[in-house]
């Protein structure tokens, strides 16, 4: 509860934030602080400088017609109230009321907790992460952003500015999660974005979190569904396939071992497909 001492600076522009990150090797950006501060309280993280980016705004959750623009500093509560589908469902299930009020999506994905909810959804929705740094602006697909346990594509002098989610006509999506009874993080979370026509799957993307070291796409399960009729048999096959998809990246612990989470990825894929196509 008593973090190690650090310096603190508040910045008023993205450029200023990047300058600070460039100047200080041990600097960390402070958005909502709901991933970083818990680690600092236990002295698991000991940055020398916190760069508070609260003044930057970046809180929009806007429907731009062709897609949604979500500011990096949008809180989970704001997203739950103003977005829709899987993204809103996932945001509404993060932590608790208090955490959702202040935790931000940018902070969440930069932290890349393997059990975090939004990454699976962003992967399934084909989101792009917009990033700025000393090298200028770039964007990266969500499925390429999450690399490993607490590891992303973000460089040490870069800042996430927004997330773009393309609108796809005729698509529906859903997120299904089994929450850890203590932390309420995802033991497994599966997001499905699907387009069906006359009961058949035209296009589908599936993202998994919790069961894996980082959020991943389940391409084997997608392939099973692609073009197939949405029925119990095909869903069951997809649920088998997703277990193979994630077999090499499984995460587990003493209470909820890898094989259980692997099996649950199948169970919750089934639930997510049914919810998305209901």
């Amino acid at each position: 509860m008593w973090p190690k001492s650090f310096d603190y600076i508040r910045v008023n522009s993205v450029e200023e934030a990047i300058t600070q990150l460039n100047k200080h090797e041990d600097a960390k950006l402070l958005a909502g602080g709901h991933s970083l501060l818990p680690a600092m309280k236990l002295r698991l993280a000991e940055p020398a400088l916190l760069v508070d980016i609260a003044p930057l705004g970046l809180t929009q959750v806007s429907d731009r017609g062709h897609g949604w623009s979500i500011g990096a500093m949008a809180t989970h509560a704001h997203i739950a109230a103003n977005a829709n589908g899987a993204l809103a469902q996932a945001a509404a299930g993060i932590g608790d009321q208090q955490v959702r009020n202040f935790g931000t999506i940018g902070g969440n994905i930069a932290h890349a907790d393997p059990a975090s909810d939004p990454p699976a959804v962003l992967v399934a929705l084909g989101a792009k992460i917009y990033i700025r740094g000393s090298g200028g602006e770039r964007n990266v697909a969500a499925e390429d952003f999450f690399i490993d346990l607490f590891t992303t594509d973000l460089l040490s002098d870069e800042i996430i500015t927004s997330i773009y989610i393309p609108r796809k006509e005729g698509h529906t999506n859903a997120y299904a999660k089994m929450a850890h009874p203590a932390s309420r993080y995802a033991l497994v979370g599966v997001a499905v974005d699907i387009c069906t026509q006359e009961g058949h799957c035209r296009e589908v993307r599936i993202g998994v979190t919790g069961a894996t070291t980082h959020a991943v796409r389940a391409s084997g399960a997608e392939a099973v569904l692609q073009g197939a009729e949405i029925n119990d048999g095909n869903i069951a096959q997809a649920c088998e396939a997703i277990q193979a998809d994630i077999a090499d990246q499984l995460l587990g612990d003493a209470a909820y071992p890898e094989d259980y989470r692997q099996a649950m990825a199948g169970v919750f894929l089934g639930r997510a497909i049914r919810a998305a196509t209901a």
């Binding site: 509860m1 501060l37 608790d96 955490v99 009020n101 932390s183």
Partner: peptide, 29 residues
């Protein structure tokens, strides 16, 4: 203060009218 991992909620206050776990924010924020 009932925990150190932002779970228990004993520290809940309102910040600008919404509920916050005051153990998960710096005074400077």
């Amino acid at each position: 203060v009932g925990c150190d991992t932002s779970q228990c909620g004993s520290c809940t206050v309102h910040l600008d009218g919404v509920a916050l776990k005051s153990c998960t924010m710096l005074a400077v924020q």
